[in-house]
Computed example of a mutant assay.
Amino acid sequence: MVTGAARGIGETVARFLGRQGATVVLTDLNPQVEETARGLAADGIAAEAKILDVTDNAAVMRAAQEIGNKHGHVDALVANAGISLELTAIEHDVESWRRVMALNLDAVFFTAQAFARPMLARGSGSIVMISSISGVGISRPERHVSYDVSKAGVAHMARSLGVEWAKQGVRVNAVGPGYTDTQMLAEVGRAKPEVLQAWLSDIPTGRLLRREEIASAVAFLLSDAASGMTGHLMMVDHGYSVGKGV
């Protein structure tokens, strides 16, 4: 199951996993997820869609049960859904802060909790949470403190749960994507080319990541090839987090 899979990194992750032979369930609050799943199915991927608000914990618990009943069990979860609000610390109010935390942090935990229950009972499963370069450092020139804090929380959540669930056979890891060539970033580049140039100047390779580069890292962490890894944050950022400005 992949959350936030209507488009962007979530869509690409679902497609990549499907091409490796997985049956993928794409979830999103955006109804576009149904069209996305049909597109994957047209390409020969075993894919289906479920409209789901991951901030609604009762709905998430129902989804975990329904998907598990339909497919026998869920082997892997990718907690990808998230938002970023371009607000400075002073501009934030309680509502905007809670909106980000509800989706980026709270929903990640309760989605992991719901889908981990049967994994723990079965003694196997793999979870990957999507963090960010903003979870380990401060990017420029944007200012989104709520996003930064939430993604740092996701990374540490993966560490904590990865240790807590290790002896029960469930691995939890996180991927920290750098600036990735998505529709959202393309829109920023067209509207504010100076911002795009600032990003590129701070990336050691001088280019944006391809979505497939994120997806392949997620697939690796989910797979048995990463059986020795849990509680790990894998940065996929072209060296941004360690070599900014090289």
Rank of each mutant, 00 (worst) to 15 (best):
I45E: 01
I130D: 02
A155Y: 02
R171P: 03
R19M: 05
V94K: 14
D53G: 06
V24I: 03
L87G: 06
P193G: 06
A152Y: 13
A114M: 03
A5R: 01
I67P: 00
A59I: 05
R62M: 06
S160K: 15
E66D: 12
G10A: 13
E11G: 08
E86F: 09
D224Y: 15
I130H: 07
A112M: 05
L52H: 06
G82W: 01
E66A: 13
N80G: 15
A102C: 05
W97Q: 01
R117T: 13
G189H: 02
I133E: 08
G243T: 14
A174M: 04
A215Q: 13
G137R: 15
K192N: 09
S150N: 08
A217S: 08
V136K: 14
V13L: 08
R207H: 07
M184W: 08
R210W: 13
S134L: 15
D148I: 14
D148G: 11
G135L: 12
A42D: 09
T27S: 04
Q32Y: 15
G4M: 03
G231R: 09
A191P: 11
G68K: 00
S216A: 11
G231V: 11
G8L: 05
V136M: 11
D224A: 13
G176V: 14
Q197H: 02
V108A: 00
L120P: 10
R98N: 11
S126R: 11
I130Q: 12
A219G: 12
A41N: 04
K192T: 10
F109K: 04
R38D: 13
S84I: 14
S132E: 11
T205G: 00
R190G: 12
F110L: 14
M101E: 12
D224Q: 15
A81N: 04
A107W: 08
L120G: 09
M229D: 02
T111K: 09
Q65C: 10
H71M: 00
M1V: 08
A14P: 03
G153F: 06
R15A: 00
V195K: 05
T23A: 03
L77W: 06
G153C: 05
T27D: 01
A114H: 04
G153P: 03
E212V: 05
Q183A: 15
P193M: 06
P31R: 14
V145P: 06
T230D: 03
V172W: 11
T182P: 05
T180E: 02
L233M: 04
A158L: 02
M184K: 10
G206C: 00
G135D: 07
A107P: 09
V136Q: 14
S201Y: 01
T12K: 14
A217I: 06
T27R: 00
P118R: 04
I138E: 07
A89F: 04
L87I: 07
A174L: 08
T36K: 13
Q168N: 07
A37E: 04
S227Y: 09
I203E: 01
I214D: 01
E91W: 09
F16V: 00
G123K: 00
L222P: 09
R19C: 00
T182A: 01
V13W: 13
G169D: 13
I51D: 05
M235T: 14
